[in-house]
Design a protein around this nucleic acid. Structure first.
Length: 427
RNA sequence: GGAGAGGUGGCAGAGUGGUCGAAUGCGGUGGUCUUGAAAACCAUUGACUCGUAAGGGUCCGGGGGUUCGAAUCCCUCCCUCUCCGCCA
């Protein structure tokens, strides 16, 4: 959520920044609502003040045994207007609140303008694009012929956009998770956390998935408003909802592996083949809650942490800065990391690292006590995939394939593979 | 699933239908004392919100109700704990 004060005092400036996302703000409507709100609020609070005073007077009078009927008569009037005022104010506040919750974050000035992913800006490249002296197979062909990936069986068990894995590939998949968590905890200073995979609507509102993007989520048929998590970001960031951090606790850096569930509504034609776009996938997520002054620096670090995984796996990648049109709802700036996929002969997104500034923190009421100012202030939140496991598996399969369709195990994963250094056909 | 108990400030823990944003203790902060520290003593210490300010308003698990007035009474939901059952 944007700072309401900023909206009140610098509306045009806010509108200009939001305009870069291709949205226009209705200034007239907002100032009307605000005007009404202000008057109504002042009036209501004044009435409440009168009520409080009179109630005390009544109490005093009664304890002395005096007659209070005059004050009681006055109270009747006050309470009548108070009731109508309070009702009006409540309606107005919820209208303003709804409007505020659907406003996206302001893009940082360093975010390139643009409308589609074609306008994203390449920041850097790393690694050698591998060359093969045979015709490369994609991960579907490789996985299916090795007997380790099975989309049909998953479709039978559930439906489309799911997969089952077996044997060496299943082990490799799990190895990737362990390797990433170990790297981030041992080398990058993250604390490992475990969280629920089902969350309530409040948590999703906190990180910004609700109220606008409900169709992207799997909602449970349960009496409470429960949803499957679309990313670990939701439960992990919400650890700090309604909490105030001490300064010495900062920065807070969590790493967490969870499955992610996405309905992928509106992407029916896209990436229907293979593991690129599934309803269920694993992800290792890095989440940070930091002092405002450090968040831009921390974003750069966060990207580096994600990159480190690809470097250790020796997978070629590039980092791009998302343009205003591609930027997520809650994000002020996002870097995507795209890994090289030989079979597609292109880079594909494997990580997304964002600085949300205080946008999520304001929704979450995630705050810290600033010892210098002695004030309670909003934290800044960041997160990034480190990395998406399914897509990393795809990248390893395709980049580490041999002519005979077997897969070499990357050096850094060998400790996790219990002696296996090559994936061959399952029996 | 059955039976019971309870949710109060950073924590622990009082609380009455009225002057209670709330005793007390711990913790935190500042100070006195001390070479320094501890102890002791004194003071101070919740969050949110409107307002330039003065000064208001809101918050005792969430929501609703009764009342002139609710932390206190009623309803409802959520959560926690104990016992039983079941289970991983």
């Amino acid at each position: 959520m944007l700072d309401p004060k900023l909206l009140r005092t610098e509306f045009d400036e806010v509108a200009k920044h939001i305009g870069r996302r291709g949205l226009s703000l209705d200034k007239k409507r907002f100032s009307e609502l605000e005007e009404q709100r202000k008057n109504l609020q002042v009036e209501t609070e004044d009435l409440q003040g009168q009520r409080n005073k009179n109630s005390k007077l009544i109490g005093q009078a009664k304890s002395k045994g005096e007659d209070a009927s005059e004050i009681l008569a006055a109270m009747e009037k006050i309470n009548q207007s108070l009731k109508t005022n309070e009702t009006k104010l409540e309606v107005l506040l919820s209208e303003i609140q709804t409007w505020m919750l659907e406003l996206p974050n302001l893009p940082d000035s360093s975010v390139p303008d643009g409308s589609t992913e074609d306008d994203n800006q390449e920041v850097r490249k790393w690694g050698e694009i591998p060359s093969f002296d045979f015709e490369v197979k994609d991960h579907v062909d490789l996985g299916e012929s090795l007997g380790g990936l099975d989309f049909e069986t998953a479709a039978k068990i559930t439906g489309s956009r799911f997969v089952t894995m077996q044997g060496g590939i299943a082990k490799l998949h799990r190895a990737l998770i362990q390797f990433m968590i170990d790297t981030h905890t041992a080398e990058h200073g993250y604390e490992e956390v475990y969280v629920p995979y089902i969350v309530n609507a409040q948590s999703l509102t906190g990180t910004g998935q609700l109220p606008k993007f409900e169709e992207d989520l799997f909602k449970l048929n349960h009496e409470n408003d429960y949803y499957l998590i679309p990313t670990a970001e939701v439960p992990v960031t919400n650890i700090w909802r309604d909490r105030i951090a001490k300064e010495e606790e900062l920065p807070i850096k969590y790493v967490c592996h969870t499955p992610c569930f996405r309905s992928e509504a509106g992407s029916y034609g896209k990436d229907t083949r293979g593991m690129i776009r599934q309803h269920q996938f694993e992800k290792v997520e890095m989440v940070q809650l930091v002092k405002p002054e450090s968040s831009w620096h921390m974003l750069e670090e966060l990207v580096n942490h994600a990159e480190k995984i690809l470097q250790k796996l020796n997978l070629a990648y590039r980092v791009v800065a998302l343009c205003t049109g591609d930027l997520g709802f809650s994000s002020a700036k996002t870097y995507d990391i795209e890994v090289w996929l030989p079979a597609q002969n292109t880079y594909r997104e494997i990580s997304s690292c964002s600085n949300f500034l205080d946008f999520q923190a304001r929704r979450l009421k995630a705050r810290w006590k600033n010892t210098a100012t002695k004030k309670t202030e909003h934290l800044h939140t960041l997160n990034g995939s480190g990395l998406a496991i399914g897509r990393t598996l795809v990248a390893v399969l395709e980049n580490y394939q041999d002519k005979d369709g077997t897969i070499k195990i990357p050096e850094v994963l060998k400790p996790y593979m219990h002696g296996l250094d090559k994936i061959t056909k399952e029996k």
